[in-house]
């Protein structure tokens, strides 16, 4: 295994593009090192991104949006009050990843690019309409996060492409988001179902919504029918029922040791309801308590 620690994303991309064997980028390493240890993936070239200037920074842009560097840890997201207040759902999703020790290292981009259908950080990004700056042999491009997952362990990134940063749009007025997952215990487990909802109100009426489901298909799902079920409503019982129905209809899960397909389908509806209520409440002004209140999110 050759270890590289380039100082620019262009250099990182050149190493990856020129490599012929197994190549991995190293962000927090909480997936890469586990796979190395298990012997499932032993990279020929391992490209550490953490020496690139700026990879650890979180920046609020002039338009109110946020730029999150490729090496920003889950703990660092949770320690940024402005980000927690604008995008509590994104932060609480990543905050559910692993233990305190894992939180000190694990990144959003790594969570996304590892390609687990159950990745907890990804539904929140998709619901938020987040994008990524991708650096590759052809230069830089912006991709929607929703377009990056391509199946378990696979992404739509081309050979040599690396994510330099993730961008969240400006929160804007009367918006709110939330993420919850179902796991059989209270900590340290993989999502059976995850759901993120991001919405905007005009008065009490929902005028925009994005609903993403995790762990119920080979990739995260952005479910347009869920959004349609609640846009134009005040999230009354009928709207919540329609939302739950749309989430169940969209779920195409597998059965495994964590839950049967029937159970996952049912939980997708339950979570969609619950998470929509939280996002709605946040949009109305009562903000999240922050990601440290993990126990409440189960």
């Amino acid at each position: 295994m050759r270890y590289h620690s380039p100082l620019t994303f262009e250099a990182a991309s050149r190493v990856a593009a020129g490599a012929s064997g197994v190549t991995r980028f190293l962000a927090g390493g909480t997936d890469v090192l586990v796979q190395l240890r298990a012997g499932s993936v032993t990279p020929d070239d391992l490209i550490d991104l953490k020496r690139i200037p700026g990879v650890g920074s979180i920046t609020r842009e002039g338009d109110g949006g946020w730029t999150i560097g490729a090496a920003v840890s889950g703990a660092a997201l949770g320690a940024t009050p402005g980000l927690v207040s604008d995008w509590p759902g994104v932060v609480e999703g990543m905050g559910l990843v692993g233990s305190t020790q894992v939180q000190g290292r694990a990144t959003l981009a790594g969570n996304l690019c590892n390609g687990s259908p159950a990745a907890d950080g990804v539904p929140g990004l998709v619901a938020a309409g987040a994008t990524a700056t991708v650096v590759g042999p052809e230069g830089r491009r912006r991709m929607a996060i929703a377009d990056i997952p391509a199946g378990p362990g696979r992404t739509a990134l081309q050979p040599g492409e690396v994510i330099a940063a993730i961008h969240l749009p400006a929160r804007g007025a009367q918006g709110g988001d939330a993420y919850e997952r179902f796991i059989p215990r209270t900590e340290m487990d993989i999502a059976v179902v995850g759901c993120a909802v991001n919405l905007r109100l005009d008065g009490d009426t929902i005028v925009e919504a994005r609903v993403a489901l995790g762990a119920v298909a080979p990739t995260v799902l952005l479910v347009e029918a869920c959004a349609q079920a609640i846009v134009g409503t005040r999230l009354d019982e009928a709207a919540l029922d329609a939302l739950a129905g749309a989430a169940r209809a969209a779920a195409k899960p597998i059965s495994d040791k964590r839950g049967t397909a029937e159970f996952r389908t049912h939980v997708a509806g339950v979570l969609a309801r619950r998470v929509a209520v939280t996002a709605y409440t946040r949009a109305k002004g009562s903000r999240a308590q922050g990601h440290r209140a993990k126990g409440a999110a189960q």
Partner: peptide, 21 residues
């Protein structure tokens, strides 16, 4: 990364040293 027996601080941050090269 599951058990924490290898916990150390890296630049002040609590990490599992088995998940750091």
């Amino acid at each position: 990364g599951d058990c924490g027996a290898c916990s150390v601080r890296l630049d002040g941050v609590l990490v599992s040293s088995c998940l750091v090269l």
